[in-house]
Design a protein around this nucleic acid. Structure first.
Lengths: 335, 335
DNA sequence: CTGAAAGCGCTAACAC
DNA sequence: GTGTTAGCGCTTTCAG
């Protein structure tokens, strides 16, 4: 199969010079006033020999790479999956090359991935749901790479983020309304997430605010910010010693997996005795009995905002707040 | 902020030569017998100035890139999400750089993406669930890039694939057993997928085989291979004129979204009158009432097999068949 | 142990 | 209109 063909090979085969081939093959030939004749000849030869340009070499010579990187915690999750998919599509629409890398909510992995992307000459990094966004921003700054935070705020770069407090408040109000008749003094709990994480803390604020407006006091031990993983939510609920909760505010579908397992284990999944709401969206989770509503983050609007910021050039501290969409589940309604 | 630092800058700052810097910074300095002293000096300076290697330049000079590409239909799906996530992890564990690109089950996009990956000098492309795997293989072959098919078979490169026929047969048998009492002459249907797609056709084979063993005849109009999209499954069921089905074999969670919407619309989601089974896995879908079982594809084993083939160097036509895991849902059991 | 220098494939400035 | 040429930043002989 031999060596990969280069512009030199093509030039020889098409009886012209490498620079002409380069110009023809990257579309700048009209500008360079190359004759349609040579152009056609070159394109035919390139096609025939299956020539593919070596982008590494090309980028080495140009100043911008048009590669845009994204660091994301997981793929295996509807929310992040949608973000990844949408990001790719919008990037491609703009003639950019998207590279996504998945870092499992691990700050060190995030930094390593960011450095790796910098090595690959990305023009931009979108840090999505990053554990330590400012660390990524710092790595980018040192390398002259633009960075934007998505889904979690950072102070050192512009941020696009959901209205977590507002969404959580609305969702809690729905949960309170729905549980009203059955509650009878049984508590309402918050499950999942890390208290140190800005989103979790904004959602806890919303949770408390809705309670305050309903004149309900929330003791600290009803807030189980035990981490995101399903097993952690399961274990935290299992360890809770107190009256059986009437309603659960679940902080993500990841935690919800554990919550649902716990409800099932205790036979409370289908008997309607425990309701829950989840800050996150998943089409199947929406159908689980007891689920009264989900706060769906508006992924298309968030990514439009990201590319808007990229085009307009945002400053550190700039924050775009995107409202959530409240999805009513299992026949709950707005009223 | 100035230009990015190069090995020349570092060499000057550390009072040594570019080649020494290069050797130190890529770990080959022991071999090159560079003194620990110089090495330390170089590393300190590089660290201090936030030097990051320009991989483009590095790759241009080397023969292998260690970039391994994957083409995948979607991220926004648990199965493909898991594949993407696992792939990244295994690639990193082996010191490779994974680049994934998502092509929406569109053959032209797949080819474009494959060519793009070739341009980025990937050593290998994994074509996952590709509409036209052989086209991708051909693009790779022309460029001297190794390729492997995952999830859908191709004839021109080695393939790693689930045992679709076997899994579908087992799943159908479970569905038949579970519906036995309630069926009363109501039909059992197959919903979702493309008949031209090898997986769908293998699953239809399994579906028919299980029926044959149970002595049941399946008329053609009960096979609704209407495409994967949820809306298509919904529309196909809606258009079906015949007795209300007792059981549905659903070809993927993507189709399942439509099936569930249809069941719900007709009030048959919670009344137990229609059971279904799904060839695919999703933790929340597993909890939907009426779901009797899901065939979970064994993603970890599939990806282990992919990297195994990569290391051993498979031939076109080689096929690794990975068994599915049957997950019983909603209290159905093996018996 | 260390450095000079050639060249990876491509682009763009410049000369013809 | 077209070709020549000088690098982009790095690795790797090869000669000290």
């Amino acid at each position: 199969m031999g060596r990969r063909k280069t512009i030199y090979d093509i030039a020889e085969l098409a009886n012209t010079s490498p620079s002409a081939v380069s110009a023809v093959l990257n579309g700048s030939w009209e500008k360079r006033r190359i004759s349609r004749d040579t152009a056609n000849r070159v394109m035919a030869v390139a096609e025939e020999h299956g020539y593919e340009r070596n982008i590494q070499a090309s980028l080495l010579r140009r100043s911008r790479s048009n590669i845009v990187g994204m660091v994301i915690p997981k793929y295996d999750d509807r929310y992040f999956g949608m973000i990844a998919e949408r990001f790719e599509q919008l990037a491609r629409d703009r003639g950019l090359f998207p590279v996504i890398t998945c870092t499992q909510r691990d700050g060190d992995l995030e930094a390593r991935a960011a450095r790796e992307l910098v090595s690959y000459q990305v023009d931009t990094i979108i840090a999505t749901g990053a554990t330590d966004p400012d660390r990524i921003t710092e790595i980018c700054r040192a390398a002259g790479v633009v960075s934007i935070n998505l889904d979690l705020p950072g102070s050192a770069a512009p941020t696009v983020i959901s209205d977590n407090r507002g969404g959580a408040k609305e969702l809690t109000a729905l949960l309170l309304r729905t549980c009203n008749e059955t509650a009878q003094g049984r508590p309402m709990m918050f499950v999942g997430g890390r208290p140190s994480d800005a989103n979790t803390s904004a959602r806890i604020d919303g949770f408390l605010e809705a309670h305050a407006e309903a004149g309900i006091d929330v003791p600290d031990d009803l807030i189980l910010a035990c981490g995101y993983a399903g097993e952690k939510a399961f274990a935290a609920l299992d360890a809770f010693r107190g009256p059986e909760p009437a309603g659960l505010f679940v902080n993500s579908t990841i935690s919800l997996e554990g919550v649902v397992r716990w409800l099932k284990k205790n036979g409370r999944l289908d008997d309607g005795s425990t309701r829950f709401a989840c800050f996150d969206w998943d089409p199947f989770a929406a159908l689980i009995p007891g689920n009264v509503g989900m706060a769906r983050q508006d992924v298309p609007r968030m990514l439009d905002a990201v590319f808007q910021v990229l085009e307009d050039g945002g400053k550190p501290g700039d924050t775009v707040l995107v409202p959530c969409i409240l999805e009513y589940c299992n026949d709950t309604t707005a009223g």
